[in-house]
Design a protein around this nucleic acid. Structure first.
Length: 290
DNA sequence: GATTTAATAT
DNA sequence: CATATTAAAT
């Protein structure tokens, strides 16, 4: 991993602030169920036919659920031992974006509600299972813990290694580092130990977002993910399977007139807008559901 | 072969 | 749900 891949950002270029739509995650906070409960028509998908309003179930029976790893049948040899129905989920790859979503979700949920299930639901990333989140969550916790231990120089600065420059985190490569850890995570109980942050100000940008999970794709002999003209060799593949499931509920009782100049947000910081950004969003918060 | 990272088992 | 252990991948 840490082998100088020369330029990991080369890959990031594909996943980072590329043409990825930023997503506020706040608006997404409204859960589908809630939306349904409120009988809110979906602006995004104005389909009167309520076939399946999008239940958060993940991988259902059909493996080829659009968002899953698309296993292109590549059987020319005749080996034909492709376990067609064997649902073997390849390895899940936590791309920075995905991780950011994760962190955002946790941040907006608060430590208390930051349990795998809730996180998973909040993330609304298709193909993501609770196990995935749980596993990653634990890793994330460990990461935070490690930081706590090393980032207590008395200075109010909560930012750990970011600017200090001191090599503080050998273990953390560049995944967690990329995500702006929302502070409060770093110190457990300091002054205010529990409930605060009714809802953190997130980026109010009404952006759509498609998220997908990425699965490993270079294990020796693996099916080639037919990319759009991406040569299997030389160049990388862009790891983003998007699914169109996210529904956005924007029509609330109070619409946010963000007349404030929140523009010029996505520059390089991309989604660093996750906090300091003038406007607030709606007052919705999934305190408890399901 | 070691380290890292996700999956699985407890 | 949290933690520990095992498995896979790099």
């Amino acid at each position: 991993m840490r082998e100088e891949d020369s330029n990991w950002f080369a890959k990031w270029e594909e996943e980072l602030p590329k043409p990825e739509e930023l997503m506020p995650l706040s608006q997404t906070l409204i859960t589908p169920d809630l939306a349904i409960a409120f009988d809110i028509p979906n602006p995004t998908s104005p389909n009167p036919q309520s076939k399946q309003q999008q239940t958060p179930h993940v991988q259902s029976s059909q493996p080829n659920s659009s968002a899953e790893f698309e296993s292109t049948e590549l059987n020319g040899g005749g080996g034909g031992d492709e376990p067609a129905r064997t649902l073997k989920r390849p390895r899940l790859v936590w791309t920075p974006q995905l991780h950011k979503r994760f962190v955002d979700a946790v941040a907006h949920l608060g430590i208390k509600n930051a349990v795998p299930k809730t996180i998973m639901q909040l993330m609304s990333v298709d193909g993501l299972t609770r196990e995935n989140v749980a596993s990653h969550l634990q890793k994330y916790r460990l990461y935070l813990k490690r930081m706590q231990g090393l980032s207590n120089s008395g200075s109010g600065g909560s930012n750990a290694q970011s600017l200090s420059g001191a090599g503080v985190d050998p273990a953390m490569d560049n995944l967690f580092a990329s995500s702006p850890v929302p502070a409060h995570f770093l110190h457990p109980g300091r002054g205010n130990s529990d409930h605060f942050m009714p809802f953190v100000p997130v980026t109010p940008m009404p952006h759509h977002h498609h998220m997908g999970v990425v699965v490993g794709h270079h294990p020796q002999v693996q099916q080639q993910y037919r990319q759009f003209g991406s040569p299997a060799n030389g160049h990388f593949e862009h790891p983003f399977l998007s699914r169109q499931s996210q529904q956005q509920v924007q029509r609330m009782g109070t619409s946010v007139h963000n007349g404030s100049p929140v523009v010029s947000s996505y520059v390089e910081d991309v989604d660093s807008a996750t906090a300091v950004n003038g406007r607030k969003v709606l007052t919705l918060f999934p305190t408890g559901e399901d």
